[in-house]
Design a protein around this nucleic acid. Structure first.
Lengths: 232, 232
DNA sequence: GGAAAAGTGGAACGGCCTACCCGTTTTCAT
DNA sequence: ATGAAAACGGGTAGGCCGTTCCACTTTTCC
């Protein structure tokens, strides 16, 4: 709610302060290109590739986004909004357990849909202020989701917020490996994890069937992750 | 059982056919260096780094191991032996369920102990014949482990061999992220997965406590995976 | 003990990436 | 319309990575 309250109205999305028209246009093209590449290949894509894909010079990219983290911050701002919003939606659900499972599934689906975002959720970027603020916000919301679901009796008492991070890291691993060859594999993982989180009597939806043996084999072959430079 | 039945006896370990003494010595140093680096930083370490660590020239490394996969094949041969042997041990256990859980824990522990091996288990290297032979062997054994455990009534009927691969990929993700900051996080994941695999009445050991919030946060900061080039 | 064979490491090369600088083009306000 | 400021993109330098070639050293074997 406290994001862009500029007096300039006609910006539907995020836009930078006093940027010249052509500069703003390039900014948008860069963001679109980066979004595309990050989604498909993870956060490790080289800056030169992003510039090439956006049809701008490397210098322009560097001028607009000084570091990779800055670019990540801008690219994933709206996804992090959706992430934070998902906690609110979960809390609005009258059924605490359904709110909990829905949140887990939503978030893991976001990871599956965007390899870059999968990494963003499993890592932390201290210099990306907007992102980290949203993450903290979501964390607070998730604590409440947990408390409600535990009070409702369907979530085990030993479940902690740290377990979500572990799940996100695990799911990032599965998504990175299977995105192309077995794009539904993550559902299997999540279904099983929910079984593990639930108290004994809890009714659970049937498990997604596992990917075929050949699909899994192809996934084992294709894992080609460029992966983030440990850069600045 | 059908491995090195050479007439040359005095080789205790793996050694190459007619290699000059000093060449063989270098070979061993290369393997040791690669083992060390792969274990700590994953399979993405540069060949130049391996050569430097081994104290040999890059040319020597390339001459001995033409490709990264060849090096991986040699380095992880004994680990894959242990992997295959673990299935035999599991099958020797009179309690099928204990055999199953012990196998899962052993394998995931191997992943946690060696980041390179974690990747090896979650990927496939068609050109690394020795490795893949062992993997196939282990796969056969695992099918039997599953059948026995399901017949015993403690393993759910919907568990499949593909679920092991998914678990290995998930665990590889957790290990890559937490190896330094929260080295026990994988135990939490595995404990929860076993809960998910077990039929309702099955007695299960208590869950490993989750890593502390600060440890998890440090893990989210430090994920710096070089990661394999999508090699030859 | 000496020559041939086997092995070695460094230099050179091409490819890819990042960071920086600089001459040119575009925009915007007057 | 026009000039200054802003933005542009390409070129260059520096760093790794992996591969190949070549003059030199070590081992082996007779």
């Amino acid at each position: 709610m406290s994001r862009s309250a500029d007096p300039d109205p006609p910006d539907d999305q995020q836009s930078e302060a006093g940027l010249r028209a052509d500069a703003e246009r390039n900014r948008v093209r860069i963001l679109a290109a980066a979004r595309r590449l990050f989604a498909g290949q993870g956060l490790g894509v080289s800056m030169a590739c992003v510039a090439r894909e956006a049809g701008v010079g490397k210098a322009t990219l560097s001028r607009r986004f000084a570091s990779r983290e800055e670019l990540i911050n801008a690219v994933f701002a709206d996804r992090m909004d959706a992430y934070a919003a998902a906690t609110a939606r979960a809390l609005a659900d009258p059924d605490p357990w359904r709110g909990f499972t829905g949140f887990i599934e939503t978030v893991c689906a976001m990871q599956a849909a965007d390899r870059g975002f999968a990494d963003v959720l499993a890592r932390s970027f201290p210099s990306a202020k907007a992102l980290e603020a949203r993450r903290a916000e979501a964390y607070e919301g998730f604590l409440e989701i947990i408390a409600r679901a535990q009070a409702g009796g369907h979530l085990r008492d030993d479940f902690t917020a740290e377990d979500l991070v572990i799940l996100l890291m695990a799911n990032a691993g599965v998504v990175a490996a299977t995105a192309e060859a077995a794009p539904d594999a993550w559902r299997r993982l999540v279904g099983q994890m929910l079984r593990a989180y639930a108290t004994p009597g809890t009714p659970l939806p049937p498990l997604t069937p596992p990917p075929s043996g050949t699909a899994v084999y192809r996934a084992m072959l294709r894992i080609s992750r460029p992966a983030p430079g440990s850069g600045t």
